[in-house]
């Protein structure tokens, strides 16, 4: 019987890799095995180049799936993403995946509130698509440093998601943090059965967690930690998680995560 959670490690070639916003790229490759299985929130572990001098792979969420192809949207951070951004059509990478757990929307959120900070929105696009497919009323709050770095707004609007923008410098949308948009939304609307889904910098996720705890709204966070294996063996990627029976446990972002309930994370 085929194993639905089977993971693959496959060589593939870059189909396209383009600058889509200041400091951010979108890479497309053909990866039928991953495309057929990846669920919202799941990620791939990418071996960028054996000749690049880098040892470890780099983790990126599956941004979109189009038939046999997957895309990933990534921010330039350091050496790895820098080498990645130089790849051209036909260059090879290895893709390990699909990895990790997935967002849960089995409770039928109304609305589902997607909150993405910076490249964090990349981890929420597949979710937005799945919510659309499930006819879930969805709102997206997208934050970025400035207009030049704004990500995904068009993609979200294209699938019919009501999208709101915040920029640190006010160059477009709300002048301030995306979490302020969230607070405002909750204060001004009487929401039926809201669920928050968030990914972004630690500071943002902490604020989202506080909002979640204060308002009692169920909230799921996609966590991003440094990774070694992404297969659950090195224990390098853990975050501190509250246990229902009391005490805490370090759980693996690559295996138990990347999606965690906000109320369980101990910052």
């Amino acid at each position: 019987m085929p194993n639905p959670t089977q993971k693959f490690d496959l060589p593939t070639e870059v189909i396209s890799n383009e600058l889509i916003a200041e400091n951010h790229y979108l890479l497309r490759c053909s990866c039928p095995e991953v495309a057929a299985r990846a669920l919202p929130g799941q990620f791939i572990h990418v071996l960028i180049s054996q000749g690049s001098g880098l040892l470890l792979r780099r983790p990126f969420t599956v941004y979109t799936i189009d038939d046999d192809q997957i895309t990933m949207l990534y921010q330039l951070i350091g050496e790895g993403t820098n080498v990645l951004s130089g790849l051209k059509f036909g260059d090879s990478i290895r893709v390990l995946g699909p990895l990790g757990n997935t967002f849960d929307f089995s409770v039928t959120p109304n609305p589902a509130i997607i909150v993405g900070g910076g490249a964090g929105i990349a981890s929420l696009m597949l979710l937005a698509t799945a919510l659309r497919d499930a006819d879930v009323h969805t709102l997206a709050l997208v934050g970025s440093m400035n207009q030049a770095r704004l990500l995904s707004v068009k993609d979200l609007q294209a699938i019919g998601v009501d999208t709101h923008i915040a920029t640190d410098d006010g160059s477009v949308g709300h002048h301030g943090f995306v979490t302020e948009l969230l607070t405002h939304l909750l204060q001004t609307h009487d929401l039926q059965n809201p669920v928050i889904y968030a990914c972004g910098p630690d500071g943002m996720l902490r604020t989202v967690t506080k909002i979640a705890l204060d308002s009692g709204i169920p909230t799921q966070l996609a966590m991003e930690n440094r990774m070694g294996c992404a297969l659950g063996v090195c224990l390098g990627c853990v975050c501190k998680v509250q246990l229902s029976e009391g005490g805490f446990e370090y759980q693996r972002v690559c295996t138990e995560g990347p999606v965690f309930n906000a109320e369980d994370i101990i910052w």
């Binding site: 001098g53 880098l54 930690n225 440094r226 390098g236 853990v238 446990e249």
Partner: peptide
């Protein structure tokens, strides 16, 4: 054993 606090790993030239 619970293990150490984070961060726990870091890549270095040709190693970690």
């Amino acid at each position: 054993w619970a293990g150490n606090a984070m961060p726990r790993i870091f890549e270095t030239p040709s190693g970690m």
